[in-house]
Every structure is written in C-alpha cells, then in structure tokens.
Amino acid sequence: MKLSWLDTTLAVLVKDLRTEARARSAVGSVLLFSVVTLTAVSYSLGGFAIDADIQASMLWIVLLFAALAGLSRGFVSETESGTVLALRLAAPPTSVYLGKFLFNLFLLGVLDLILIPLFQILLPVASANWGLLMIGLVLGSIGLAASTTLIAAIVAQAGVKGTLFTVLAFPVLVPVLVAGIGATRKAFASEPVAAAMPEIQLLVSYAGVMLAASLLLFDHVWKD
C-alpha cells in the first residue's frame, strides 16, 4: 500500500503526540515555563495599574519565551534517542516537517489555552475584543510554529547545544512579535477586527511565506 503525504504527515504527528502523552516533557516544560514567566512578570508589576499597551507586550513576551523554550525540542529529541535515521526512512521530508509543524502548533495551542485565562486572572484586562485577540494568537502561533520548526531542525542538524536556537529564532520572529503585539493592543482597546487589518495581513503573509519557504528548504536541512 502506498501512503500519501497526508497519511505520513498524520503518522508523524500521531507519533509525536503519543510520545508526548507518555513522557509529557514538552507540554510540561512549556507550561511551567509560561507560568513562571507570567508569575515573574505579574509579580514584578504587582499592584501597579498598567496600560493595555503594556499588557499586550507582556502577553507576547511570555508567549515568545515559552515558545522558544518548548519548540526547540522537536528535532533534538530525535537526535538524542537515535531515531533520526528511522524517521528519515519512514517518511518523506515534507511529511516530517509538516508533522513536526502541526505538533508545535498543538503545543502553542495548549499554551494559548492555559496562558490566556491565567493572564486574565493575574493581569486582568478590563474589556477586550476577544475575537480579535484569538485571531491574532492563532495567526501568530502559525507563524511562530512555521519558522521555529525549520530553525529547530537546523540547530539539531548542526549538533550544537545551548542558546543557539534562541539566537537564531528571535530575530526572525520579530515581524510576528510586532504584528502580534499590534493586534493584541487593538483587541485590548476593544477595537473592531477591521481596525487591525494591517496587522492581520502582516501575520497572514508572514505565516504563508514562512510555511512555503520552510517546505522548500526543509529537504536540504533533513538530508545527511
């Protein structure tokens, strides 16, 4: 039976989800990291009334750091457990990339679901356009996952440990950060979705371009 790329992509995703369900390493570290960062931020701001502008920046800083802490693991774990060769044999590169991308997107989704209610408890926002906030978070998460998946693969192939992932990923993610903060700021000011069109366009085009480029480039990173 010949498997289509969709089957193999889903197989890679299911494999990662199953590994995650057994070990709970990525979700655990991402969630703890985000809770710790959020606590640090809200504790150091504790008691001060802060503007919606600053709150939007804080939310994205917590999100970015939790993402950088958690998403770097995807390919390193394969190298460490010596399963890279098996994965290379079992699935075409496009499916490996897409499977890992979907898994990272899943992690970011879990992160968003936990972080937003916690944020609302610790640094409450008086009123917000929740729909716009969701659009910003979803599009931002797609952009984040698309570029960090490729960079995580580069770092794992380079065989370097330490801070290289953050050094490589952060500057590439700046457009997402700028547009994400912009959209969130407008959401916290209860502005309609139409007012945040420039940011939404930027997020959509960034996510699309990064996803397309990653799909084209991943072959070169993955082959040995």
Partner: peptide, 15 residues
Amino acid sequence: LAGVYSILAFITVPF
C-alpha cells in the same frame, strides 16, 4: 545549513 538560514533570514528582510 547556513545557506538555509541565510535564505530564511533574507525572507524576513522585506517584512
């Protein structure tokens, strides 16, 4: 690997 990163980096330049 540096080539892949360089391409990815240049894609962010227009943004």
